[in-house]
Amino acid sequence: MKEEMLVQISDFKLYAKLIGEKNGKCTVVMDAGYGDFSKAWDSVIGEISMLSQVMIYDRAGLGNSEKSSNPRTSREMVKELKKLLIDAKIQPPYILVGHSFGGVNMRMFATEYQNEVCGLVLIDSTPEDYKERFLPTMSKEFQVAYNKQFVYEGNYDEFMESLKQLKETKLLLNVPLIVLTAGKKAHYSKESQQLWNEMQRDMLEISTAGELVIAEKSAHYIQNDEPELIVSAIKKLIDNI
């Protein structure tokens, strides 16, 4: 089954696609990284849709979605996603999957609507203390390039506001969590890679049932470098329901 839709959210429409058959257990909801949209999941969507129904979507202003007049912060994006799920009649429970900045959104969604979530997969997700703890360890060139990338959706300040919002959210309780972290980032020194892995491991503390998987052969886009790790993480959560 494949169904595409444009759903009205206040003054704009969000594009979403439903793929696969509902197995009665859950719907997998996937959120891409900063500036990315639903095509970011092309490498894994076929296999995941064999396991369960999957919803991928484009955040406002990206892909096939219209621009939103709301602030481009995680809090607003979570509200927009919630309305999309309600209006598209996609019932909980959900397994949430977030890559990079999408992981920030999915963590916030999971804490906001914990009783609707039966699993969370964070794929090289941005840690809430990225600015304070990680950025200062990188070269000036890296920091300049990092700051300049915020032109696709939301600016640098809105992105940092999202990380601040994440710090203010309450901890997860009983939602099973799998953290997948990229173990082979070309522009990271050995020390930076160790720090990154450590910060990813720290994310396990938001759940009573967390597991860390280091994707040794992957750069930031684990879904492209080692797609089987993402499929197996989602399968594990589905099997545990």
Score class of each variant (00 low, 15 high):
Tyr156Asn: 12
Gln91Arg: 14
Ile48Gly: 05
Tyr152Leu: 13
Gln91Val: 10
Arg59Glu: 03
Pro93Tyr: 12
Asp157Thr: 13
Cys118Asn: 14
Asn147Thr: 07
Thr111Trp: 02
Met106Glu: 14
Val121Ile: 14
Met108Trp: 08
Leu120Pro: 13
Gly61Lys: 02
Ala88Glu: 05
Glu66Arg: 02
Tyr57Met: 01
Gln143Thr: 02
Leu62Ile: 07
Ile95Ser: 12
Gln149Ser: 03
Val121His: 00
Val121Trp: 01
Met55Tyr: 01
Asp36Met: 11
Lys148Glu: 14
Asp58Arg: 06
Leu122Lys: 03
Ile95Gln: 11
Asn105Arg: 12
Val151Ile: 12
His99Met: 03
Leu85Trp: 01
Val44Asn: 04
Thr137Val: 13
Met77His: 11
Asp36Ser: 13
Lys82Thr: 11
Lys148Trp: 00
Ser74Val: 14
Ser139Met: 01
Ser100His: 02
Asn70Leu: 12
Asn105His: 12
Asp129Gly: 05
Lys79Arg: 14
Asp87His: 01
Phe37Ala: 09
Asp58Gly: 06
Lys39Tyr: 11
Gly119Leu: 10
Gln91Phe: 06
Ile95Cys: 13
Val117His: 02
Asp58Ile: 00
Ser52Phe: 10
Leu122Asn: 04
Ala88Tyr: 04
Leu96Ile: 15
Val44Tyr: 00
Val104Asp: 09
Asp87Pro: 00
Phe101Val: 01
Ser65Leu: 05
Asp124Ile: 07
Leu62Phe: 00
Lys82Val: 01
Glu116Ile: 04
Gln91Met: 13
Val104Ala: 02
Arg59Asn: 00
Asn115Asp: 14
His99Pro: 01
Leu135Lys: 00
Glu132Asn: 06
Asn105Gly: 12
Phe142Gly: 03
Pro127His: 08
Glu112Leu: 12
Phe109Tyr: 15
Lys140His: 01
Gln91Tyr: 11
Val151Asn: 08
Leu51Gly: 05
Pro71Lys: 10
Asp129Ser: 10
Tyr156Asp: 10
Arg72Gln: 12
Gly46Met: 09
Leu81Asn: 09
Tyr57Ala: 02
Asn105Trp: 07
Met108Ser: 13
Val78Asp: 12
Thr137Leu: 10
Lys39Trp: 09
Ser43Asn: 07
Asp87Ala: 08
His99Gln: 03
Val78Gln: 13
Glu80Trp: 00
Asn64Cys: 08
Glu47Val: 05
Pro71Val: 07
Lys131Arg: 07
Arg59His: 02
Leu85Ser: 10
Tyr57Ser: 05
Glu76Gln: 11
Asn147Met: 06
Val44Glu: 04
Gly154Gln: 08
Gly98Cys: 09
Phe101Cys: 01
Ser139Asn: 00
Ser68Thr: 15
Lys131Met: 08
Thr137Trp: 02
Asn115Ala: 08
Asp42Gln: 15
Glu116Pro: 11
Glu141Leu: 11
Asp42Val: 01
Ile48His: 04
Lys89Gln: 10
Glu47Ile: 02
Asn115Ser: 13
Tyr130Gln: 01
Met77Gln: 15
Pro136Leu: 06
Ile95His: 11
Asp42Cys: 09
Glu141Val: 14
Glu112Gln: 14
Gly98Trp: 01
Ile95Met: 14
Asn105Val: 15
Leu84Arg: 03
Lys67Met: 14
